[in-house]
């Protein structure tokens, strides 16, 4: 990596909008997936993120606490109980705002580096 690129990356890291809940890749992944798919099976999420049920539950509880997601149980078409995680309208709006802010900051940094 060139020195300029490194400086730009440091600058980016310092100025990016920080949302405490999205600072880990686990919660970021959950939010991006839910943003795209609206709801996801708990077990699939657990396998994808390679987490224990308790660990995933901890992350989900934090997102639930902020009213970003909700979890509920449902019977599948094969009559098996499923736990589903769904994004709330507030969660969707908040995540969209976060992404928009992120884009603005990145754009500003790129513009300032070009000057």
């Amino acid at each position: 990596m060139k020195k300029d690129d490194g400086d730009l990356m440091d600058k980016t890291t310092q100025t990016l909008p920080s949302n405490e809940l999205f600072i880990t890749s686990v919660r970021l992944t959950i939010m991006i997936l839910l943003f795209n798919h609206k709801k996801i099976n708990f077990t699939e999420l657990q396998k994808l993120l390679k987490l224990t049920p308790g660990n995933l539950d901890h992350h989900l509880k934090r997102l639930e606490g902020a009213n970003y997601v909700k979890t509920y149980k449902k019977l599948s078409s094969l009559r098996r109980p499923l736990t589903l995680v769904e994004i709330t309208p507030y969660g969707k709006k908040s995540f969209k705002e976060y992404i928009t802010n992120l884009r603005d900051v990145l754009n500003n940094i790129v513009l300032s580096s070009e000057k």
Binding site: M9, T12, T13, L16, S18, F22, I23, T24, S25, L28, T29, I32, L33, N36, E44, L48, L49, L102
Partner: peptide
């Protein structure tokens, strides 16, 4: 780990989920 790196890791996982689906 910076936010950029977290995003990068998150997108890799998202891609894998899409592939699985």
């Amino acid at each position: 780990m910076s936010i950029i790196e977290e995003f990068d890791k998150a997108f890799q996982l998202v891609d894998r989920y899409e592939e699985y689906k």
